[in-house]
Design a protein around this nucleic acid. Structure first.
Lengths: 332, 332
DNA sequence: TTGAAAGCGCTAACAT
DNA sequence: ATGTTAGCGCTTTCAA
């Protein structure tokens, strides 16, 4: 059906080998080059990547494994990854594991079976041992958002992000500061909780457990827990919500309860500048450099793919940014 | 490095062909089957999909092309597609074209070059002629969300969805009904606009242009246009917003403006039941069956992939659902 | 500079 | 039921 090297060779009267060389950028006689190119155009010849892959043992694809495709944070990163990889001739198998630990391993194996050249993974609970197969096959692995033992990693300084946000509230004069964290099983959630606790401690504040709620990183959780915290007889004067979905839920809940930001409650949210800027008053948020995370991970993988194993395993800890809005003022 | 058929054959003392047969589910002697399986386990043998693909001329991958990876509607569909495909042994190349017409063609060609077995595309502006290559290569194509000439298509009845929503407002007694539509370049936006106009017309209402705004399907647009419409000297008594992002923007804007739903304004939004249920009062929304769209498209593609070209090209027009909330009441 | 030939790992006749 | 063999389309020595 589709034209092959053989067709081009035949049409030009040259050999397959010569045509192959031309395609791979090896010098051929100028006049031949022209004839080959013409034949390629006429026949609409395109390299069969599968055949090439079989020969070169490189599929020019990388796998990207994320908890969920239906999550803005993940997909923003993937979007950046895909762009970089694509610019370098790689294509991307994107897999989600539905935040399901079993499926996580499952999909990882699946990617391996697809003979990807490298893998970028946002792990939740996959045990290090399951990754051995990749390591042993010499397939580069880059972990994002959460660290993995003995693996190149790109993440943000979650502890510091949370520390700074909390400190920001403290400096505004708050002492009764609420926080909605993520699941204790998730690394980022633990780190963000740590940052909050440390900041409180460093200021000599003893946090009230009534102000601390562990959420699930999902919108409904943020909504419900915000109500819980605010319904307390002595609600906090400031609230810090530690991811995007829960921030959305919190804002909706506060609107419903007619709790005015920042008059009744100072507020710091997480991620998604766009949303933060649209809300009135503009929300003060912790912003993660999603595009940079993706780009850094992709660049790193590309480097490993090219055989450069310098400084392995490296840990890129990117900085978050506290974007000031109008949602934090002094408590009454 | 990795074990091949040859290794397994050698270890078992059988021939490559026999091992291959076993792997492909062709009966071999029971005792041999056991030996082969054991060797496979011991060696950690896994089929080389690339080699198999070269031989069978099927890569067992399909391409999915969407405008954006950073859009809940798209990714929800993709998520469903991926699930179905994966269950059937296919893997998925997900590409986004950043809502950029040039890139759209670009990425389409890219997928073709990757010798995918089939393609599911959510097209924006790709000309039918660009798809010829797929058609000529015999690569099945399924279009989602928007119809494509001569192509299997899965979409929802946008006209009816909008008609019903508008009618719902009219039946509640509204006559001054605002709408925020999407870009005129996008099929769904045009259809939703048509549905609104038709419903108004069928009830003998002449819509006021001041109540009609064309948005961009993005959150900030919904936000800004809601303010515009409400700032009018004679604002509508009801507002219909025609996609998720803009609905989010509209709700935020209304909260800011202290416009109470439904007391001051009846409201119908679009998509994302989760959000609609969390907002108080619960939003009445038009819901698209995203999971079903994905599943239908994947099933259809799978059918074409298996050679069943019955009723080609078929158009699946799925039904949306108007989910009643508490955001629509009679106007004052 | 070009071409002949040997596979990459697998499947599928075909023969046994 | 099993084995032999001929490729799939490409890259890459090696020789000419």
């Amino acid at each position: 059906m589709a034209a092959t090297l053989w067709d081009v060779a035949k049409q030009t009267g040259l050999s397959i080998a010569t045509v192959s060389k031309y395609i791979n950028g090896i010098r051929v006689k100028e006049s031949n080059a022209a004839r080959i190119q013409q034949a390629i155009d006429e026949l609409g010849y395109r390299v069969n990547m599968i055949a090439r892959g079989l020969k070169t043992n490189r599929s020019m694809t990388v796998g990207v494994l994320i908890p969920s495709l239906v999550n803005l944070f993940s997909t923003s990163i993937v979007s950046a990854i895909e762009r970089v990889l694509q610019e370098n001739g790689y294509s991307t198998f994107i897999c989600d594991y539905n935040s399901d630990p079993e499926m996580e391993e499952n999909r990882f194996r699946f990617l391996m079976d697809k003979s990807v050249d490298g893998i970028i993974i946002m792990p939740t609970s996959i045990p290090e041992t399951s990754l051995d197969r990749a390591v042993q096959s010499g397939i580069p692995l880059v972990s994002i958002d959460r660290p993995l033992e003995g693996t190149d990693t790109v993440l943000v300084d979650n502890f510091l992000a949370s520390y700074e946000a909390t400190q920001h509230l403290i400096q505004a004069g708050h002492r009764r500061i609420g926080i909605i964290t993520g699941p204790g099983t998730i690394y980022t959630a633990r780190e963000r909780y740590r940052g909050y606790m440390q900041a409180m401690k460093d200021s000599g504040i003893d946090p009230d457990p009534a102000c601390i709620r562990q959420g699930d990183y999902e919108l409904p959780g943020g909504h419900a827990l915000t109500r819980e915290i605010l319904d307390h007889t002595e609600p906090p004067t400031a609230l810090f919500v530690t991811n995007y979905e829960m921030t959305l839920g919190a804002v909706i809940a506060l609107n419903e309860m007619n709790v005015s930001i920042p008059r009744d409650l100072s507020f710091i949210g997480f991620d998604n500048l766009e949303m933060a800027q649209i809300i009135k008053p503009r929300l003060t948020i912790v912003m993660q450099p999603v595009a940079l995370i993706g780009k850094t991970a992709a660049d790193l993988l590309l480097r490993r793919l090219s055989g450069d194993m310098q400084d392995f395993p490296v840990l890129h800890r990117l900085k978050t940014e506290l974007i000031p809005g109008d949602s934090v003022i002094q408590p009454k």
